[in-house]
């Protein structure tokens, strides 16, 4: 039976979809059958980030309405046979997919996969409830910005009432150089304030932006890839090994790198 993990945030643009996609790839690379569901009905983007938009024929709404079978709608990743994507509709009326229908769809899928990652829409309305109701674990993604952390805190308060098995936090887009200079809160500081365990730290990484816009998020070995691989290991092992975004700015070469980046 699959572990069903919802990736949520509150604030939009913190990197939920990119992290859902990267995490799905990492888990599949570790020989797990993994399904990523785009639960953002009407504002779907997972297909674009994963580079499968051309293969999209049917979507989650078509499965729920009985227009097609689940296997018709699932898209297998072209680079990893164990990774599947269930896209959401770009035109389906949001209220027409109820939480009960979404949950029932997940129950039908849970025996076929080791992991089901649910990419939750931003906000705390119907879409949030629908996505969370299908999960038994939650990861709240935030960035080190106060607005994102504040929304994350509200989402964490709401998640507490869902009776989930675990709730943890990923801090995305951490700038190691700014943390070292004392100009940005560290992921550990943020987790302490939020009072939830940290499961991952992902650095700010231009390569992630570049490759996700090309739809080839899983094909490069960049810093965020290493960070997400550690998150996958943490999910699988229950241990907590975190990426240190300050590491590349430590020592003589690191300081030189930091000085050069600041000068440019």
């Amino acid at each position: 039976m699959a572990r069903k993990i919802v990736l949520t945030s509150g604030k939009g643009g913190v990197g939920k979809t990119s992290i859902s996609a990267s995490l799905g790839i990492s888990l599949a690379n570790r020989n797990n059958r993994c399904l990523i569901i785009d639960a953002d009905v009407g504002l779907n983007n997972l297909d674009v980030v994963m580079g499968v938009e051309n293969q999209l024929v049917y979507d989650m709404a078509d499965v729920i309405s009985g227009k097609c079978t689940i296997s018709n709608a699932l898209i297998q990743d072209k680079y990893n046979a164990g990774l599947y994507i269930l896209p959401s509709s770009h035109a389906f009326n949001d209220v027409q997919v109820s939480a009960a229908e979404f949950r029932s769809l997940i129950y039908r899928l849970e025996d076929s996969f080791d992991f089901i990652l649910i990419d939750c829409p931003a906000g705390i309305d119907v879409g949030f409830h629908r996505a969370v109701s299908g999960a038994d674990e939650a990861i709240v993604v935030t960035t080190p910005h106060i607005s994102a952390i504040r929304d994350g805190d509200k989402v964490l308060s709401m998640l507490a009432s869902y009776g989930l098995n675990s709730i943890s936090v990923i801090v995305n887009r951490v700038r190691g150089d700014l943390v070292l200079q004392g100009n940005m809160m560290s992921a550990e500081d943020i987790a302490k304030v939020l009072r939830y365990p940290l499961i991952g730290v992902v650095p700010e990484d231009d390569n992630l932006t570049i490759y996700s816009q090309l739809g080839r998020i899983g094909l490069n070995a960049h810093q965020s890839r290493i960070a997400v691989d550690l998150i996958a290991d943490n999910i699988l092992s229950g241990k907590t090994r975190l990426y240190d975004p300050t590491l590349r700015y430590k020592g003589l070469i690191g300081k030189l790198k930091m000085w050069l980046e600041k000068s440019i």
Partner: peptide, 16 residues
């Protein structure tokens, strides 16, 4: 700046 941001964050969350 980090400590200022932290104390501001705590204040914002408390205010909420």
């Amino acid at each position: 700046n980090k400590n200022q941001a932290l104390s501001r964050l705590k204040r914002v969350l408390l205010q909420d």
